[in-house]
């Protein structure tokens, strides 16, 4: 049985009322959702919030899924949209000082990464990622960490492949400069 067939059966089973099927879908894709949200938001607490929002959308909309794309692409699209919406809200909260991003990023006790060396490297990357515009950050993450093709990224973001390549180039150049010069 292929992965797509498996997703098809899980969705149909969930639509028929099997809650365990939904749990299986979550178990299958939750790490992908988490890591996209984590790299976009730059910290564990915000990523956790985005994961929960994505699951709520997924639960409510799964019955309307029409198999026009793969389930992975569809879930990734929801995650990308939710992440960007969350970041826009977070920026607003920061403007009105309701949100302390520094406190969130330094809170290591709640983090899921236990290896300190890895955490340090990831912290540097996350801080550098926060310095580039959302659309550049998004394509950089999808291309480098999720190894998506530009066509797949275009399907998710709605941006042309030409635009995506330009964004990727700017992101790569800027993030490398920031990380090499420690300009966090």
């Amino acid at each position: 049985m292929t992965d797509t067939d498996n997703d098809f059966e899980l969705i149909n089973s969930f639509i028929s009322g099997n809650q365990a099927a939904f749990n299986k879908i979550v178990l299958k894709y939750q790490q992908k959702i988490y890591w996209h949200a984590r790299r976009m938001t730059g910290n564990h607490l915000d990523a956790d919030e985005v994961v929960q929002e994505v699951l709520i959308v997924l639960y409510n909309k799964l019955k309307d899924f029409q198999f026009k794309s793969s389930l992975y692409t569809w879930i990734y699209k929801i995650t990308a949209t939710r992440s960007i919406n969350y970041l826009k809200k977070r920026n607003l909260r920061q403007i009105f000082s309701f949100d302390d991003l520094e406190a969130k990023s330094v809170s290591s006790s709640e983090d899921v990464i236990k290896d300190l060396e890895t955490k340090e490297k990831l912290d540097s990357l996350e801080k550098a990622l926060q310095k580039v515009p959302l659309r550049q950050r998004e394509v950089f993450i999808m291309r480098n960490f999720d190894e998506m093709s530009y066509e797949e990224i275009s399907e998710i973001t709605g941006v042309t492949t030409g635009g995506l390549k330009a964004n990727y180039f700017h992101a790569m150049k800027k993030i490398m400069e920031i990380m090499q010069n420690n300009e966090y």
Binding site: I113, K114, N144
Partner: peptide, 10 residues
């Protein structure tokens, strides 16, 4: 960046 692709998590 490739090293940060698959991070072990709790």
């Amino acid at each position: 960046l490739t090293q940060l692709r698959n991070i072990e998590v709790d």
